[in-house]
Simulated assay, not measured.
Amino acid sequence: MYSLLLVDDEPNILKSLRRTLNRLEDEQGQLIQLDIDSFDDPMEALKAAETKSYAAVISDYRMPQMNGVEFLLFFKTKQPDAVRIILSGFSDIEGMIAAINEAQIFRFLAKPWHEDELRYTLLQGFATRRLLIENRQLADTVRKERELINKHEALLAKLEAESPGITKVHWGPNGEILLDED
């Protein structure tokens, strides 16, 4: 199950988004369970983000309290791994640039949106988020393994310094261990 946050100052848009995303299916036709919260006040949405984790957030660009970029910047500080999507009925180039560069949004979609495009974008966002989290976990595992290897190498170096040759094994042509190189 994925938690999704919708933010738009127009309640009808929120209802429409909820209706569009209420039945989300993956590429195999499997129904994806969404826990959808919607807010017409970005400040209330930010409060909700303090207590609940969201996999994705879809925000309107133009809202009276704050614009979508400002909202997503605040949201990003609370939940940096959430997929961030902006919807806008206006073609504001400066706003798009700010959304991409500052809020690091996943997609900028136009209103009125195409339902299939919105669904597909959300599915792509979930997949991208999953890969980013897996990559971070793998990188953490590699770091821990490197630390362990470095400790072992340091121990071997210490042993070698104390007793030269103790960590070196000389093998014979038939797989025997040679105690003396001669």
Rank of each mutant, 00 (worst) to 15 (best):
I85R: 07
L73H: 02
L118Y: 13
E145G: 01
D116V: 00
A161V: 10
T51W: 05
A56K: 10
L4N: 00
V57M: 07
D8G: 01
Y54R: 12
N174W: 03
P173C: 06
R84H: 09
A49R: 12
R62L: 15
H114I: 08
I93D: 04
I100C: 11
A48I: 03
N67Q: 08
Y120A: 14
F106V: 07
M96Q: 14
D26S: 11
A161K: 13
G172T: 08
I36C: 04
D8A: 13
I105N: 02
A103Q: 04
K76D: 09
R23N: 12
Q65Y: 03
Q104G: 00
R143M: 07
L131N: 15
G95N: 01
L132K: 15
Q65C: 01
G89D: 06
S163E: 11
N135P: 00
D116R: 03
L73E: 13
A98R: 15
G95T: 10
E102G: 06
S16V: 03
A157V: 03
E162N: 08
L155C: 03
I97Q: 10
L156H: 01
L17H: 03
L34C: 07
V169Y: 04
E153Y: 06
N150D: 13
L31G: 08
I93N: 01
S91R: 10
V142P: 06
V69P: 02
K78D: 05
K15C: 01
F39T: 00
R146L: 14
K111G: 01
D9L: 08
K168M: 06
P11C: 07
D35N: 14
L122F: 09
R18A: 05
K168C: 07
S163T: 09
L46C: 11
N150H: 06
E181Y: 04
K52D: 01
H152Q: 13
L155K: 08
D140A: 13
H114F: 07
F90L: 10
Y61S: 02
M1S: 15
